[in-house]
Amino acid sequence: MFKRFSQWFFGIDDAQKERNPIKEIHLEKGRIEIIVMPDLGYGKEYKITKWHVQPGQLIKTGDVVCDLENRTILMEFESIYGGRVLPIVQLDQKLKVGDAIFKIEGV
């Protein structure tokens, strides 16, 4: 099964996203937020199989940052903030719920 995080978490499909775009959430300049592995309810261990962004790249709310996978799912993980991406984990590194995935810095 392949879903985007917003489809799973918010129940939003692409058509709804176009009609009602997600509001951009900006961080204060220099503020850093750590994005952690959410509890998706599909098992305990996950891994990042693909980064869709480069370190230092500027992104906006709703941009796909990485692909998360476990034995049950493959999901695109979208950012809830706009800012500069600071990756933390390597590809195929095992992740548990609550582990840091990446940081995002307000610009």
Score class of each variant (00 low, 15 high):
Ile101Cys: 06
Arg31Gln: 13
Lys103Met: 11
Lys96Glu: 15
Lys60Thr: 10
Tyr42Ser: 10
Gly43Arg: 00
Ile22Ser: 07
Thr49His: 13
Asp67Ala: 09
Leu58Phe: 15
Ile34Gln: 14
Ile22Asp: 06
Ile12Tyr: 04
Leu86Gly: 10
Ile48Leu: 05
Phe5Thr: 09
Lys44Phe: 12
Phe102Ala: 07
Val107Lys: 09
Gly11His: 05
Val64Asn: 11
Glu69Phe: 06
Glu18Tyr: 09
His52Ala: 12
Leu68Arg: 04
Phe5Ala: 11
Gly41Gln: 00
Leu40Lys: 01
Tyr46Met: 06
Asp13Glu: 04
Pro21Arg: 10
Ile32Leu: 11
Trp8Ile: 02
Ser6Asn: 09
Gly83Lys: 05
Val89Lys: 04
Glu76Met: 03
Gly43Ser: 02
Ile35Phe: 13
Arg84Gln: 10
Ile104Thr: 01
Val65Tyr: 01
Arg84Glu: 05
Pro38Val: 03
Ala100Phe: 08
Val36Gly: 15
Pro38His: 00
Glu105Ala: 06
Lys96Asn: 15
Leu40Met: 00
Val107Asn: 15
Asp63Glu: 06
Gly106Asn: 00
Phe10Asn: 11
Gly41Ile: 02
Phe77Asp: 00
Val53Met: 05
Glu78Trp: 01
Met75Leu: 06
Glu45Ala: 09
Gly106Thr: 02
Leu58Gln: 08
Ala100Leu: 07
Lys47Ala: 15
Gln54Ala: 13
Pro87Glu: 05
Leu40Cys: 01
Gly43Lys: 00
Arg84Trp: 14
Glu76Leu: 02
Met37Thr: 07
